[in-house]
Amino acid sequence: MIKVGIPRALSYYQYYPGWKTFFEKLGAEVVISSLTNKAILNFGVSRAVADTCLPVKIFLGHVISLIGKCDYVFVPAITSLGEKTYNCSKIIGLPNMVRALIPECPTILDPEINLEKGRYYLYRNIYKLGRYFSSNPVKFKKAVEEAWEGNLAYRRKMSHEKITAIQAIDRIYGEDCAPAPSLDPPEELTVAVVGHPYVVYDDYINHRLIFRLQSMGAKVLVPEMVPEGELAIAARKLVGETHWSFEDEIIGAGEYYLEEKVDGIINLAVFGCGPDSMMVSFVQHRAKELKIPFLPLSLDEHSSEGALLTRLEAFLDMVKRRKKI
């Protein structure tokens, strides 16, 4: 059986159920890399130019950890997911960077997903991808449809059940859920965490931020819990015409939760993230207007757990004092 490796990084958190369905319907076995750990980070850091952002370094590390475990590695170039909006350069150039930096990598499956170039271009790229597994176009079509449905169901699951992407993936595939933190101190605060899914859900990068917030007695909200369509509306309200495909998860979620009057809002960004450096200032500005506490956290491979904890505790104390709990 053909084995397809999917690195557990970047777009994994948004599309994994869809991708898995697609490859399995085409008769391939899906292998995912393990959770991010120090070895993976070091692999990535050793290959990339120093200025590269942390998530991309981690992605490279995941690809390296898949070498020898699979026949193909799936690294899509997700260029555009809507009219006149684009993704970050590093995500668009991801397959090329992987090829350049990891010459020993297994064959890379690198469909370009670019809705700006129209449907036909997308179909052609999916067809090219499917050719690796079968010669029957009807089969691809079915696989794509099911994958699409699977992914929509996954998105809906997160927004309806108000769960994080990790919990949703666990529930869909019946794996062991991460142990829910004890709620001894009852949830008295609501804190929204806005950021890219690959930062918010990668426990190695963010030092288990969600778990820590929960165990400090906060109810954590993430962008994926917002009902469908609301994010885009909120983003348009704050900055007008959107520019990047992932503006929803920062500006949209920020604006949505600020309007919902959460007690505090935490932005998780990584050092050197180009889009974040621009977008966060809008959310921060808005939070200032609405007088809601806002904590920007910038993470990189050197960020220390202790320092993060201190800042979180101080932030939550401040929020509590404001609420007079």
């Binding site: 200025d51 090329n96 350049a100």
Partner: peptide, 12 residues
């Protein structure tokens, strides 16, 4: 510094 397209170029 942190120019996204040029980092891709620099890596390649």
């Amino acid at each position: 510094f942190t120019c996204m397209p040029e980092i891709v170029a620099q890596n390649i």
